[in-house]
């Protein structure tokens, strides 16, 4: 075969180009720290990386949702705890009043008045601007005194529930939307569902003491004690469901943390540059390029001209 000048030059140029191109790819991988810089670098890997990233970013959002849910649930739990302690003290007062030896029931009634005010405040607790117990009516006060009654005095009337019985949810994973709030009716006034109205019960007890300071109405008193126990049960149920929701949230949070570690590892394996490997390859290409350059220089320069005496 005749090896002509254009043949030699083409071969040298093509070898250099090929070498430069391979180096360029490696250089891009090293500089961007990504093995996949465009879909054609690895179509399957690119699709995989996109899906993994979507799952990861979704998890970050679910994690935020869970944090938000936990905040709300803890606020609910604390408030329920306050209510529970109030009910315990109401029960103490009730038992004291039930004792025949007690004579100053007026005083007990006054204590209950205070408690009622306190309870109304607690029932209207806000968490980050939202009324906890208003159902989905989070911006209007859930428990208020009836404005139609002329005397806006708590001692004269029972607080009314103005919220709704609906719940709002938090998406804590792809498939689960967790009920977040407990409508105030489920805690304070379950009379519609055969339960008790806590405000009503305390109010009844207070009236019993007020009206019968010396000798109480025994039938009403027994009824009050029964109903107070039921109110405590009612509260415990609410407590339990909040506790369960918190547990579910924590469970999901832990799960995401574990899952994200695996996902990040998979994403990294899919699209990140293996630096050690890339460096070694880069070095090898560099050697190849240098060899190609020096070989090219030797192939191109000499011709018969160099040896002719002119």
């Amino acid at each position: 075969m005749r090896i002509t000048d254009s043949y030699r030059i083409r071969t040298v140029i093509e070898n250099l180009n090929a070498s430069r191109e391979r180096m360029n790819i490696l250089q891009e991988q090293l500089a961007s720290a990504k093995r996949i810089n465009r879909p054609s670098d690895d179509p399957t890997g690119a699709t995989m990386a996109m899906k993994l990233r979507t799952v990861l970013e979704g998890n970050v959002q679910y994690d935020k949702n869970i944090e938000d849910a936990l905040g709300f649930l803890s606020a609910t739990e604390n408030t329920l705890n306050d209510v529970y302690e109030i009910l315990l003290s109401v029960k103490d007062i009730a038992l004291k009043g039930a004792n025949d030896a007690t004579t100053d029931r007026e005083d007990l009634a006054d204590q209950l008045d205070l408690i009622l005010r306190n309870l109304l405040e607690i029932a209207n607790t806000k968490y980050r601007g939202k009324y906890i117990f208003g159902g989905t009516e989070t911006l209007s006060m859930p428990f208020t005194l009836d404005e139609n009654v002329m005397n806006h005095d708590l001692e004269m009337q029972v607080a009314m529930y103005r919220g709704d019985s609906k719940t709002f949810k938090r998406q804590i994973n792809e498939h689960t939307a967790l009920d977040l709030n407990i409508p105030g009716s489920k805690v304070f006034d379950m009379s519609a569902e055969g339960g008790v109205n806590i405000f009503q019960e305390i109010y009844e007890l207070r009236n019993n003491f007020k009206q019968n300071p010396m000798k109480i109405d025994r039938t009403k008193m027994d009824q009050s004690l029964d109903n107070l126990d039921e109110a405590l049960d009612q509260l415990l149920n609410a407590f339990l469901s909040v506790g369960t929701r918190k547990q579910i949230s924590y469970f999901n949070k832990d799960r995401f943390e574990l899952q994200n570690i695996t996902l990040k590892e998979r994403l990294s394996n899919t699209e990140d540059t293996d630096f050690g490997n890339a460096f070694i390859q880069f070095k090898a290409e560099e050697n190849a390029l240098n060899s190609a350059l020096s070989a090219g220089a030797r192939v191109i320069s000499p011709s018969l001209l160099d040896f002719l005496k002119i």
Binding site: R38, P39, S40, D41, P43, A46, T47, M50, K51, T54
Partner: peptide, 16 residues
């Protein structure tokens, strides 16, 4: 996400 990443996958395969 499936639909779009599949589109990109197809683009990658064809480009390659």
């Amino acid at each position: 996400d499936d639909y779009f990443s599949e589109t990109i996958g197809v683009l990658g395969v064809e480009a390659r």
